[in-house]
Design a binder for these strands. Structure first.
Ligand SMILES: [Mn+2]
Ligand SMILES: [Mn+2]
Ligand SMILES: [Zn+2]
Ligand SMILES: [Zn+2]
Lengths: 141, 141
DNA sequence: GTTAAAAATGCAATAAAATGGCAAAAAGGA
DNA sequence: TCCTTTTTGCCATTTTATTGCATTTTTAAC
């Protein structure tokens, strides 16, 4: 997705198109797996000249999440992980219990199970826990 | 599950049966939804005479998790949530985006989707995000 | 029941991840 | 360019979790 596209999505969501927001969204859109705020910061530190403050990253991600441009995933780790909301929707994720890598899977999300009365579902998430190829090839279990 | 049963499970896992471990496991087994370490502490503070230190709770939960007696769930919230590993297995969970309540659902976990080569799955988790009945009945969306 | 070794706990310090307040800076429209 | 509003940077603080170490508890052997 091109920068003008991303800018447009931010503007359409009713916010100002700032360097930080654009860079964060760009970063998440370019990544092929969900990132933590700190990972976003590292990426920007490596590939950008102006590096936003850590707090700014948090706020940019928050804003993007609240306005539906990115999504926060359920994780077993301590840090939150985010991915862009794009065409490709409703896919499962793999989480390695050793290296904490979180990877998108081709598998679509299963159908909505029945809920207790009064409950309203908005999103379904399927998380597969296990060992990634690298960690399995490596040493300890 | 009775206390002797729980003690036995701890001993069978190769650990010492301590007041703290037993109380924590008891607490999680009695709760009808997954709890955070702090919630466990609150429960024990209310229902127990000797209240273990917060760090002891963390260590007891860790030990129980490592030895397969409890399980840490994937969450969107900041605090981890744990539930006992019992007969009833492989069920989905509902997470309210407003009150952060996490509730067990009757729905079984869906079948394992295909994984990339070399990856090994160990557990599947299905998380339904939305609004619980109480929060939906309440005020703001 | 005593005793000794090993394991677990309490307490204080520290770390990791995230949030809040506020003045300065940037964005966007007039 | 100027003005208003939004966003940012910095610092302090909060929340959640972890580490180090002396003390206590557990358990098995006697
Ligand atoms: Mn994904
Ligand atoms: Mn459950
Ligand atoms: Zn891995
Ligand atoms: Zn709720």
């Amino acid at each position: 997705m091109t920068d003008p596209d991303l800018s447009r999505r931010i503007r359409d969501a009713g916010g100002r198109v700032t360097t930080a927001r654009l860079a964060v969204l760009r970063c998440l859109a370019d990544a092929d797996e969900p990132l933590t705020p700190d990972e976003v910061l590292e990426h920007l530190a490596r590939n950008s000249d102006h590096v936003p403050d850590r707090v700014t990253i948090y706020r940019a991600i928050d804003w993007l999440a609240v306005h539906g441009l990115v999504r926060r995933l359920a994780t077993v780790g301590r840090a939150a992980r985010y991915e862009p909301v794009e065409d490709r929707e409703a896919h499962a994720h793999f989480q390695c219990r050793r290296c904490a890598q979180t990877r998108c899977l081709p598998a679509p999300t299963p159908p909505l199970p029945p809920l207790p009365p009064g409950y309203a579902a908005e999103r379904i998430e399927l998380v597969i826990h296990g060992l990634c190829a690298a960690c399995r090839a490596g040493d300890t279990p």
